[in-house]
């Protein structure tokens, strides 16, 4: 506060921010500031209004709750399967930790969760739930592609128009709303199992948690790598095995599917600017050229069907 009792706007906002974002609540935050000599005596009551029915601290707590639960809801929407896998209490605690490290720095909530997969990988939970970062990457890819740039998909006619003798030299570009993911665990199958289990439950009930404080941790058993109860049934947790998925948006709907190693490598080659011939060459290793060509044809067909190819060029 400025001398003479005036409010300095910057100081007021920094104090307000500190109080409403403190994970243990406004009162402990005030006590901490008092211990450190930042706040003195009845500074809060002198600065903010309050009465017997609703003291200043409780009024500030309203903002603290809104701060945390709005961001929790946003992350629950962007990470539906991470939340389903962990359960509401662990998800709540993970979000508490995440927001301390990564408060929103963007005017849109759409970007709030972008650091979560990396954060999860280095979080203590990762030791007990090693597949969580992979699951988070899948959830985030789906959220991220929802409003990725639009692009018309490649038509069959455009592909058919290529001179047949030069088809092998063709190179594809992908639509912006496409991503190829490599996992250390089989999370695609797990994602689907959670989805099926969830469809019988009431996800909204769980998303909000049941805490009456603000971002304080909730008590719960630490999840383990074994089967656990979640949603409508018992879901086996993902095995540790290298796996791939592609995620894409078609007709404004985001899809994903798992891939075998061959398809994943083919997509990686195409994405790095290699030709169809190079893809066939890779596929031919260990099998004949006709079979490799047939496989390439089937893959290209499915990519066309799914609308993940944006263009084709000849060098």
């Amino acid at each position: 506060m400025k001398p003479g009792g005036m409010i300095d706007l910057r100081q007021a906002q920094e104090l307000f921010w500190t109080l409403i974002t403190a994970p243990e609540g406004v009162r402990p935050a005030i006590e901490d500031l008092e211990r450190r000599g930042v706040l003195k005596g009845r500074a809060i009551d002198e600065m903010f209004t309050g009465d017997e029915a609703l003291p200043a601290v409780e009024r500030l707590d309203i903002y603290a709750n809104m701060y945390f639960y709005r961001l929790l809801d946003c992350l629950a929407e962007d990470y539906p399967k991470v939340r389903a896998a962990l359960g509401p209490a662990h998800f709540h605690n993970l979000v508490t930790d995440y927001l301390l490290r990564h408060p929103s720095e963007h005017p849109s909530l759409r970007h709030l969760g972008r650091h979560l997969p990396r954060f999860v990988a280095s979080h203590p939970l990762a030791a007990r739930v090693p597949w969580l970062a992979d699951l988070a990457r899948l959830d985030w890819a789906r959220a991220d592609l929802f409003d990725a740039p639009d692009a018309p998909p490649l038509s069959r006619d455009a592909l058919a128009a290529l001179p047949q003798e030069r088809a092998g030299e063709a190179r594809f570009t992908m639509v912006p709303a496409f991503v190829l993911l490599r996992f250390d665990h089989e999370v695609v199958r797990y994602w689907r199992a959670l989805d099926e289990a969830e469809s019988g439950g009431d996800p909204d009930d769980a998303a909000h948690g049941r805490a009456t404080g603000n971002a304080a941790r909730e008590g719960a058993e630490v999840p383990d790598t074994h089967d656990h109860e979640e949603g409508a049934g018992r879901v086996a947790t993902p095995a540790r095995r290298r796996s791939w998925a592609r995620v894409w948006r078609k007709d404004f709907v985001v899809h994903h599917c798992s891939l075998d190693e061959e398809e994943a490598q083919s997509l990686e080659l195409l994405r790095s600017g290699e030709s169809i011939a190079r893809v066939c060459q890779r596929l031919a290793a260990g099998r004949g050229v006709p079979k490799a060509t047939e496989r390439a044809g089937r893959m290209i067909q499915s990519w066309l069907d799914d609308g993940i190819l944006a263009g084709v060029t000849l060098p």
Partner: peptide, 25 residues
Amino acid sequence: CWTGVGGRNAHDLLPLPYTEQALDH
């Protein structure tokens, strides 16, 4: 209102003090 400070965003509509300083600002 204000929604954040220090480059961070609360995504909430936070109240201002109604002072001459805030008004000018």
